[in-house]
């Protein structure tokens, strides 16, 4: 049985179709990444799957239970960690966890033990008795994650778990998610960052304007987008014209002109091609100040996916 099976999900708010016919299958035990920009419909989809929002059309099952007809059965298996840390600011970190433990019908002793475990695991042991109001953004997010794990859920929804976090807190969250998956949980994760989906997810669905633009394993998706992107900054902006022509020939792709007067950005199908192109620049006497071969950005992914759709 799959953790999530959804077909034809639709949710409109007024005239806006936030989710416009989404099909989704999340195998049990996997990490599914839901990738898209702000307003793409990621959160709305998650809220429908988590029984918080009633779909206008379509249906969804979580571990075989219909989210509309059997919300109680679904709620018993899931946990939701929201985009906006949904912890209680007027309580301490420990009180937040204790409240959830009691609500999960743990005994007082078990609740206290679990709260201690979680505070320690999320590096909050020293701050457990401070009001959440005084926490930093990263601490709040860690507490929020901990709150979702007071009782280990079979399916964990993580709605943009690292948006707005500094790099250190971000990698801490990643470490936690990996640990959960190693313990057998299924995770449905939304993110705006391709590298986050790449780091954590087994399968990725790209969503835009309420529709799935592409879905597949990381490598399937990457090969459909093409390789990475070569960013070059020239020492002399005067060489830009020549460099542009040279890169376009070497990489066999058009090089769009962007805002940086000394910068060049081109799609590179493989690292080898990028290295050869850089070598050609240097042979031609065009001095390179810096270069980077990066993954495509989310913008580039969308550009690639939407152009592909139009051709097909």
């Amino acid at each position: 049985m799959h953790a999530v099976e959804a077909s034809g999900l639709v949710k409109a708010f007024g005239a806006t179709r936030a989710v416009d016919g989404i099909d989704l299958t999340v195998p049990t035990g996997s990490v599914y990444g839901f990738l898209g920009p702000n307003g793409a419909g990621k959160t709305t989809t998650i809220r429908m799957l988590a029984t918080l929002l009633r779909p206008d059309a379509g249906q969804a099952r979580v571990f075989g239970h219909d989210v509309v007809a059997e919300p109680a059965a679904v709620r018993g298996r899931i946990s939701l960690t929201g985009q906006y840390a949904s912890v209680d600011e007027t309580l301490t970190g420990r009180e937040n966890l204790t409240l959830l433990g009691r609500l999960h019908k743990l005994t007082r002793a078990a609740t206290a033990t679990r709260a201690d475990e979680l505070l320690a695991a999320f590096d909050l042991a020293d701050d457990g008795d401070r009001l959440v109001r005084t926490y930093s953004g990263g601490m709040r997010r860690r507490l929020d994650l901990a709150a979702g794990l007071v009782v280990r859920p079979d399916l964990l929804f993580l709605d943009e778990p690292t948006t707005g976090l500094d790099p250190r807190s971000r990698s801490e969250v990643w470490r936690v998610v990996r640990g959960l998956v190693a313990d057998g949980a299924t995770v449905l994760l939304t993110t705006q960052y391709l590298d986050e989906a790449d780091q954590l997810a087994d399968r990725i669905a790209v969503i835009d304007h309420g529709r799935l633009v592409a879905a597949g394993t990381n490598s399937e998706l990457k090969s459909s987008i093409g390789g990475g992107t070569l960013h070059v900054r020239l020492r002399d902006p005067g060489d830009r014209e020549a460099g542009l022509a040279l890169l376009a020939r070497a990489l066999g792709a058009a090089v769009p002109v962007d805002g940086d007067p000394a910068g060049l950005t081109a799609r590179a199908e493989a690292a080898g091609g990028a290295a050869a192109a850089l070598a050609e620049l240097s042979w031609a006497g065009i001095e390179v100040a810096e270069f980077a071969l990066g993954q495509p950005t989310l913008d580039e992914v969308f550009l690639a996916l939407t152009t592909k759709e139009k051709v097909a």
Binding site: L52, G82, S86, D88
Partner: peptide, 12 residues
């Protein structure tokens, strides 16, 4: 603040 979203996903 979204606190109730979490409560609503609990089986209570």
């Amino acid at each position: 603040t979204g606190v109730y979203d979490r409560f609503r996903t609990l089986s209570i």
